[in-house]
């Protein structure tokens, strides 16, 4: 139940989980790497984000390459994607094949943070890979993780 619990408020501080790394890192991660030549053993991942309701701010996307990283908030890649419409896309290059998961939130007001109400409930949209849903916290690694194979991979995530 989401009501009245300090414990639960802590559990629901998805903001903290998503934002375990400073926003400056996100901005740096925005530097394109698309010119890197694709070696056969590497993978690319094209992420498409659909269902954006408010065309402002940016999507703050974190890619994780392990369960431990996912749960501790240590991202393998971070991307900031400026929102201009109902959908957005970004291709990540040069990834090692393996198991990954994505967390993201829509920084609607562009303040660089995942906003929450005074009791810690998120007030900006967030989502996970596989469109996995959490309950009173982020989606579990098992639900959000997916396999990246050598070559081109794609995933669509619905947000808002």
């Amino acid at each position: 139940m989401t009501r009245r619990s300090n414990n639960l408020t802590t559990a629901l501080s998805i903001a903290a989980l998503l934002m375990a790394q400073p926003i400056a890192a996100l901005a740096q991660a925005d530097a394109p790497s698309a010119t890197t030549a694709e070696a056969p053993q590497t993978a690319s991942l094209t992420l498409t984000f659909d269902g954006i309701k408010t065309p402002t701010g940016a999507l703050m996307v974190a890619l994780y390459d392990s369960q431990a990283g996912y749960e501790s908030g240590k991202a393998a890649r971070q991307e900031m994607i400026v929102v201009t419409g109902e959908s957005a896309t970004r291709t990540l290059q040069g990834l090692a094949p393996g198991t990954y998961a994505v967390k993201l939130f829509h920084d609607v007001n562009g303040d660089g943070r995942m906003n929450a109400n005074p009791f810690g409930m998120p007030t900006e949209p967030y989502a996970f890979s596989n469109d996995a849903k959490g309950s009173m916290g982020p989606a579990k690694w098992d639900a959000a993780s997916f396999t990246l194979q050598a070559g081109a991979n794609a995933q669509t995530i619905h947000i808002d």
């Binding site: 989401t2 998120p122 959490g134 309950s135 009173m136």
Partner: peptide, 10 residues
């Protein structure tokens, strides 16, 4: 199967 993202989901 419940997905409680905030109070209003419950």
């Amino acid at each position: 199967g419940a997905h409680i993202g905030d109070n209003d989901d419950a």
